Amino acid sequence: MSTVPEEFKYSAEHEWIGTTADAQVVRVGITDFAQDALGEVVYVEHPEVGASVAAGDVVGEVESTKSVSDIFAPVAGEIVAVNADLDENPGAVNSAPYAAGWLFEIKLAESAGTDSLLSAEDYKKQVG
């Protein structure tokens, strides 16, 4: 069974959303379930810092030894940071998907769409 931390919210597309020290900024990554399905991650294409995104927009890609998968913005806002450490260590997405393997941070728009995110319990039901 995949790890699904209770403190995060989740998108139907297998991204997690966690809080940061700034209440207006959330950290985003892919779930343990998603990284396991992808296999060994070998490259992460980051979104552009400063870009405005809508919930559901494709903002980057994760490439693994099995496939290439789109990364979606789970909420609307502005990309304010990317995890540049993944350039040298993309495997962190596999080894620590909820910690060192985070992908990017978004400053939430006024109508960010956080209400449509799944709780940990609902996400667990989705992935079985």
Rank of each mutant, 00 (worst) to 15 (best):
E78V: 13
N94S: 14
A81S: 14
L86C: 06
P74F: 06
A76I: 04
P47Q: 03
V42G: 11
G39Y: 00
V68G: 02
V59S: 04
A51M: 13
L86Q: 09
I71H: 01
V75E: 08
V62W: 02
T65Y: 05
E61W: 10
V49Q: 05
D70W: 00
D70G: 06
G91R: 12
P47W: 00
E61Q: 14
E63M: 11
E45M: 05
P90N: 13
L103I: 10
A100I: 05
L38N: 10
N83Q: 03
D85W: 03
S52M: 08
G91T: 11
D85A: 15
V41T: 04
D87V: 07
E48L: 07
T65N: 15
P97E: 04
L38A: 06
S67Q: 08
A51L: 13
S95G: 10
T65L: 14
E45S: 09
V41W: 03
F104K: 12
F72I: 00
V59M: 07
A99I: 05
V80M: 10
I79N: 04
A81M: 08
V75W: 03
A73M: 01
L103C: 05
A76F: 01
V82G: 09
E40V: 03
W102D: 07
F104I: 08
G101F: 12
T65K: 14
V93I: 07
E105Y: 01
V75C: 09
D57M: 05
N83M: 03
I106A: 10
A55T: 11
G50T: 02
F104E: 07
S67N: 08
N83H: 02
D87K: 13
A51H: 10
E40M: 06
I71F: 00
V53L: 04
A92L: 15
P47A: 01
Y98I: 12
T65F: 10
S95E: 15
E48Y: 00
Y98W: 01
G50K: 06
V82H: 09
F104Y: 12
S95F: 01
V62Y: 02
P90S: 11
S67V: 09
E40L: 08
A92W: 08
Y43S: 10
G39R: 06
K66Y: 00
K66M: 06
E40S: 12
P74I: 07
D85P: 08
V75F: 09
E78L: 05
G50N: 03
A81I: 02
D85C: 05
A76G: 13
S52T: 15
V62K: 12
E78R: 13
G56V: 00
S69Y: 03
A99H: 14
Y98S: 11
V62Q: 06
G77F: 03
A54G: 14
